[in-house]
Amino acid sequence: MELKRILLVEDSINDVELILTSLAQNHLGNEVVVVRDGEEALDYLYRRGMYRLRREGNPVVVLLDLKLPKVNGIEVLAELKTHPVLRTVPVVVLTSSREEQDLTSCYELGTNAYVVKPIDFHEFMDVIQGLGLFWAIINETPPGSMPVPINNGQGIK
């Protein structure tokens, strides 16, 4: 069985490093695909552009920052939650925003969770470990989340 993929949509290099380190320290060997802006996230999910040849299957969870270049996180969330196939992909908003408007908008659009990034390093690590454990191991994923083997006997997809 292949490990479930996590899509991390984050433009802060420091936050990416902390998140990847935290997941690794919790021995979550899941593949984490990192994209740096909302446009790249949509390209990944829709398998277009540089991701047109990526493996089939949706990520088990999308960890989505809100303050992103090109296409912001709220726009990405709105796009995902209105798409007939992608709307079942769990989305966890992982942001520094405590703005009530952002929180309300995200839940109205259908986010599965809204997590404010702790400022304290150890708290941040604990939060990420908990998210990784829940979404990649404990939570039952919607159909289509499991990756399909790359070589299915009919050549490479």
Rank of each mutant, 00 (worst) to 15 (best):
Q25N: 15
L80D: 01
E75L: 06
V76P: 07
L77S: 01
Q25P: 00
L28R: 14
G29T: 07
V34R: 09
L53V: 00
V71N: 04
M50P: 10
L42Y: 10
P59W: 12
Y51D: 01
L63Q: 02
S22Q: 11
L63P: 03
G29D: 13
V33R: 13
G49M: 06
L23A: 09
V34E: 03
L63W: 15
N26M: 10
V34M: 05
L80G: 03
G73C: 07
V34Q: 06
V32T: 15
L63D: 02
V61G: 07
L23F: 12
L68N: 07
L42T: 02
N72Y: 04
R54N: 04
S22C: 10
R48C: 06
N26L: 10
N72E: 08
V35R: 09
L42P: 02
T21Q: 14
L42N: 05
G38D: 04
L68V: 04
L42D: 02
V61E: 06
L45R: 11
S22T: 08
L45T: 04
V34S: 08
G29K: 13
G29Y: 12
N26W: 13
E39G: 14
L80T: 02
L53N: 14
K67F: 05
K70A: 06
R54M: 04
P59N: 08
R52I: 01
E75Q: 15
G57W: 11
V34W: 13
D65W: 10
V33G: 01
E39P: 00
R55I: 00
G29F: 12
Y44G: 03
G57P: 03
V34T: 14
S22D: 08
K67R: 13
L66Y: 01
R36Q: 11
S22N: 11
E39T: 00
L68M: 07
G73K: 06
T21K: 15
N72W: 03
V34H: 15
N72R: 05
L53D: 14
N58E: 07
T21G: 08
L80Q: 11
T21Y: 14
N30W: 06
L77K: 01
G57H: 09
L53A: 12
E75C: 01
H27D: 14
V71Y: 08
Y51C: 02
L80I: 15
